Simulated scan of single mutants.
Amino acid sequence: MTDSPTAAVSPPPRYPVVLFDLDNTLSDFTSAQSEALPGLLAAHGVAEAESYLPTFKRLAEPLWEQIEAGTLTLDTLNGERFRLLVEHTDIDVDPSVLASKYLGWLSTSGRLIPGAIDLLEALHGTVRMGMITNGYAEVQRPRLERFELTHYFESVTVSSEIGHAKPAQAFFDVALRQLGNPDPATVLVVGDSLSSDIAGGANAGCATCWYNPADHPRPENAVGIDHMITDLAELPNLIHGA
Rank of each mutant, 00 (worst) to 15 (best):
P114F: 10
T150I: 08
L144W: 07
S195V: 14
A202E: 06
L37E: 04
R141A: 07
E138D: 14
G79W: 01
T186Y: 07
I198V: 10
I229H: 07
F153G: 03
K57V: 15
A168L: 07
D90L: 13
E65C: 12
T2E: 11
L74M: 01
D3K: 14
D75T: 00
L179Y: 06
G191F: 15
F29W: 03
S96M: 09
K166I: 14
R143G: 15
D28P: 05
L98M: 12
G79H: 09
R83Q: 13
E148W: 14
I91R: 08
K166Q: 09
V9F: 09
P114R: 11
A122L: 04
N237Y: 15
T157L: 02
L84N: 06
L37K: 02
E50V: 10
P95R: 04
E50Y: 11
L106F: 03
M228R: 08
L179N: 06
A137F: 05
E80V: 02
I132C: 15
T126S: 14
D3Y: 10
A116H: 10
V190M: 05
D192C: 06
G205M: 15
N237E: 07
S27N: 09
G224V: 10
S31G: 12
T108C: 15
D94P: 12
N212V: 13
E61W: 03
S107F: 15
L144Y: 12
R141Q: 08
P16W: 15
V223G: 03
L149N: 01
G45S: 11
S100Y: 03
E80R: 02
P11T: 09
I239N: 14
V190G: 06
V190T: 00
L176K: 01
T208P: 13
G201Y: 15
L103D: 03
I198K: 01
A137P: 10
R128G: 10
T133L: 12
P142W: 15
I198T: 02
W105H: 12
E121V: 09
L72H: 00
A207M: 12
V174S: 04
A170M: 03
L26T: 02
V127K: 09
G70M: 00
I132E: 10
L19N: 08
V18R: 10
L103A: 07
P236A: 11
F20C: 07
K166A: 13
P11M: 13
L103P: 08
S4T: 09
Y52T: 04
H88E: 14
S34N: 12
L77K: 00
G70I: 01
E220M: 06
